[in-house]
């Protein structure tokens, strides 16, 4: 059953193989520099989702679902939510919810600055990316069966 070629043609597969990693890296850049330049967790999470979606569209769902499935993505989403809540609860060290608890906030305009904001960006991007990927994977898995035949 796996003998027949799945997915799109060879040209699309080659192009997807070359570009998926670059798109993933761009998403990570957008997330990690979200506090010094435009971007942030929301945009970066969706870009990471698009890298996986490109792999699914090019190689077919049977190939891709062996690597990562909807349940794995769902657990990653829960991990992102718990991480965000943990960062929020850690603010109680200094007194209140969502406190920016780093005393030394680092040098401004560099990567390691701004306290909890990069950590929150990572948590948000995990949540958004994994959640939307789970939605897309489930929508791809649904097979259309025409209801007219059943009456």
């Amino acid at each position: 059953m796996n003998k027949e070629p799945k997915g799109m043609t060879l040209i699309v597969k080659t192009a997807a193989r070359l570009t998926a990693g670059v798109i993933l890296m761009y998403g990570i850049y957008i997330i990690s520099h979200g506090h010094v330049s435009p971007g942030g967790g929301f945009a970066g999470g969706v870009i990471i989702t698009l890298a996986f979606v490109l792999v699914i569209l090019a190689f077919g769902k049977e190939f891709s679902m062996r690597k990562v499935s909807a349940s794995i993505a769902s657990s990653f989403e829960s991990f992102g939510a718990i991480m965000f809540l943990a960062i929020a609860l850690a603010g109680f060290l200094g007194g209140y919810f969502f406190l920016n608890f780093f005393i030394n906030k680092g040098v401004p305009f560099t990567l390691f600055s701004a306290g909890i904001i990069p950590l929150c960006n990572i948590a948000i991007s995990l949540k958004v990316g994994a959640g939307l990927f789970a939605v897309f994977a489930v929508l791809v898995m649904l097979k259309f069966t025409n209801g007219k035949d059943k009456g």
Partner: peptide, 8 residues
């Protein structure tokens, strides 16, 4: 906050 991006 120390963040250059005010929206963030």
């Amino acid at each position: 906050t120390g963040a250059a991006n005010l929206v963030s």
